[in-house]
């Protein structure tokens, strides 16, 4: 009995030691960002690095809002991110259901087409895609960014893999009960896939929020630009204001972290088990 508790204590000591080491290694960049955001540009890349500045420049956090219209950019980014995330979740989970649980002609081929397009670097089809979108009158519109981001193959793939893990027997039972496929999707699959939906939400949110090249190519009017373009504006041809860049980056991280923290609670073992038992 005694050795068992001993073991348990030893085990948790190891676990926590590991965790703290991990936290340390992963947190250094965050600490660096904050400390750099409180510095003058010239001090940032100096060695030895001063982790805690003697003379913090809080002014950096004020300047970022006045030097460029950062608030407008943040609003644009928030709008785009919300719309893209909602569309992505809806269309992806919908399509994924068919790929995972329905049988139809061309299923595997179509699915493979989806996955393999992820492998094509955007740089290579960016120009024809842009020319095409401009012909449709979509250049310099938010709609263009939404369209580019919302129908990604990634979401379909992710959701499909999660649905694969849900036993077919559940769907069969519902079908026998006379439930339509749409009903099964809405009433059985969606509630069961909260962890996967959370994952997809986090990833889509992060990607759209941090997307840079897409908005840069498409959005040329100032009032339509996004946060990431704004942050790059502090890098000009002849100088780079890293203090301001880091201050703006810290600000731009906050929503991402909030989304992550509020959704990771769905990664709790056992929430799905009751239902799956069926």
């Amino acid at each position: 009995m005694k050795s068992k508790t001993h073991n348990r204590i030893l085990r948790s000591v190891i676990v926590y030691a590991l965790l703290f080491l991990l936290a340390f290694v992963m947190l250094i960049p965050f600490v660096w960002m904050i400390s750099a955001s409180l510095k003058l540009n010239k001090d940032i890349f100096m060695i030895p690095y001063e982790w805690i500045t003697k003379d913090p420049r809080w002014a950096n956090y004020v300047d970022i809002w006045t030097k460029i219209p950062l608030a407008t950019y943040a609003l644009n980014t928030a709008k785009l991110t919300l719309i893209v995330t909602v569309l992505q979740i809806l269309t992806s989970s919908f399509a994924a259901y068919a790929f995972a649980k329905l049988h139809f002609r061309g299923r595997n081929l179509l699915f493979l087409a989806y996955i393999s397009t992820i492998a094509v670097p955007w740089q290579v089809y960016m120009v024809p895609q842009f020319m095409f979108m401009r012909r449709l009158g979509l250049a310099d519109t938010h709609l263009a960014i939404i369209i580019l981001q919302a129908f990604s193959a990634f979401g379909v793939f992710l959701m499909r893999q999660f649905y694969e893990g849900i036993p077919d027997s559940l769907c069969e039972a519902a079908r026998i009960d006379g439930m339509s496929e749409y009903g099964i999707y809405a009433k059985i699959m969606l509630p069961l896939s909260k962890p996967a939906l959370s994952t997809l939400t986090i990833f889509t949110f992060v990607n759209t929020w941090n997307d840079f090249l897409g908005p840069l190519i498409y959005l040329t009017t100032d009032s339509k630009k996004t946060l990431q373009i704004g942050i790059r504006m502090f890098i000009s041809q002849y100088s780079a204001e890293y203090g301001l860049i880091m201050a703006a980056s810290v600000i731009s991280l906050i929503p991402v972290l909030i989304v992550f923290m509020s959704l990771q609670k769905y990664f709790v073992a056992g929430i799905t088990t009751g239902a799956v038992k069926g």
């Binding site: 960016m126 120009v127 842009f130 020319m131 401009r134 012909r135 250049a139 090249l213 840069l216 190519i217 040329t220 009017t221 100032d222 373009i229 790059r232 504006m233 890098i235 000009s236 041809q237």
Partner: peptide, 21 residues
């Protein structure tokens, strides 16, 4: 003024000028 950003100016300009639109 249309600001295409400094770092990727050439990439963006080249893309914008592709085609005749």
């Amino acid at each position: 003024m249309v600001d295409l950003g400094s770092t990727d100016y050439q990439t963006v300009l080249g893309t914008q000028l592709s085609g005749s639109d």
